[in-house]
């Protein structure tokens, strides 16, 4: 090789670190994406430390203080107190843990099942594809929340069951997304090259195809986080899912509904928390999509 070719390559060579830095730069150019990232960071912070930092930890644990029930927002109770005299701010802070972890669990399980189904369908094609995708379509025809209710009712209430119930109605979106991406990626020349090398189908799928379809999956996961949190809250709201006294946004909202509109503050804090979390994850997802998946940029 000529020396000039060497030098040119060295000048333009960008190690992986640089690529990440450039992606971060592009991401940080969008104020909305950064706002989303900050909001998501705050949500994650409260997921981890919410229970510890709550100003009235005894209320989080289920303690009541009937003497000070339905106090309007004040300095001592920024979001007031509820029908049991518990500090609403403490409950909402502690509730972040359950809501966000449940949402994350739903998205994680849903994306793993969906990715496997979609990848196998798109890779194998033929009758396997038909069977798997008709199964996916079948799941899609049933409204997600109703399916989740049915599953949750059958499994019984509780955190784990709730997550599984929602995840089982969550995967079809991933299956369809991944199938499409896999169908496109399997025609790439480097996949043909791997086949010519004698690579096993498993190796081709996991080493060559899936790593190249990861970006849209990550984007969809972050966009889905908000909806998953909402769905978890929805199940809590209708009474399937986590039971009081474990604080959870949907359950908090459901209880305070009976005291509207006189004691509006009991509903405002959990509603606001949900709004901010969903909004943050959606902004982050949009920003990530612009960076990771430029094809889909509007």
């Amino acid at each position: 090789m000529s020396t000039t070719e060497h030098n040119i390559a060295d000048d333009f060579a960008t190690p992986r670190r640089d690529r990440l830095r450039r992606a971060f730069f592009r991401f940080s150019q969008s104020k909305l994406s950064m706002l989303g990232a900050v909001m998501v960071a705050a949500v994650i912070f409260f997921t981890v430390f919410g229970t510890v930092l709550a100003p009235y930890p005894e209320h989080v644990a289920g303690g009541v203080d009937t003497a000070s029930r339905f106090m309007p927002p004040s300095v001592a109770h920024p979001f007031g107190t509820n029908e049991l005299g518990q500090d609403v701010l403490s409950l909402v802070m502690a509730g972040t843990t359950v809501s966000v972890l449940a949402g994350f669990g739903v998205v994680l399980i849903g994306s793993v099942i969906g990715t496997l189904v979609g990848a196998v369908a798109g890779f194998a094609r033929g009758w396997i594809d038909e069977v798997l995708m008709r199964l996916t379509d079948l799941t899609l025809t049933i409204p997600g929340l109703i399916l989740a209710m049915a599953i949750a009712a059958a499994l019984g209430s509780g955190f784990g069951n709730m997550v599984i119930a929602i995840a089982l109605s969550w995967w079809p979106g991933y299956a369809r997304l991944v199938r499409g991406e896999v169908l496109a990626a399997r025609e790439e020349v480097y996949v043909t090259a791997a086949r010519a090398l004698g690579a096993t189908p498993k190796r081709i799928l996991f080493r060559h195809i899936l790593p190249n379809v990861v970006s849209p999956i990550i984007v969809k996961m972050s966009l889905d986080m908000g909806f998953a949190i909402l769905t978890v809250a929805g199940l809590g709201f209708i009474g399937i899912g986590v039971r009081p006294p474990t604080p959870e946004w949907g359950t908090l909202l459901s209880v305070s509904r009976s005291y509207m509109p006189d004691y509006w503050w009991t509903a405002m804090a959990p509603g606001l928390a949900m709004f901010l979390a969903v909004f943050g994850f959606n902004l982050l997802g949009d920003g990530l999509r612009d960076v990771l998946d430029p094809k889909a940029r509007r």
Binding site: E188, V189, Y190, T192, A193, A194, A196, L197, G198, A199, T200, R203, R207, H208, P211, N212
Partner: peptide
């Protein structure tokens, strides 16, 4: 392993997610 191919388009025939080391050693692993 005894019959190999070099494709026309060098931009499409290398997996963008694999380092040169992984690409070159893949036949050895297979």
């Amino acid at each position: 392993s005894r019959v190999q191919i070099v494709f026309q388009d060098p931009y499409a025939s290398l997996n963008p997610r694999m380092s040169v080391y992984d690409i070159v050693t893949e036949p050895l692993v297979i």
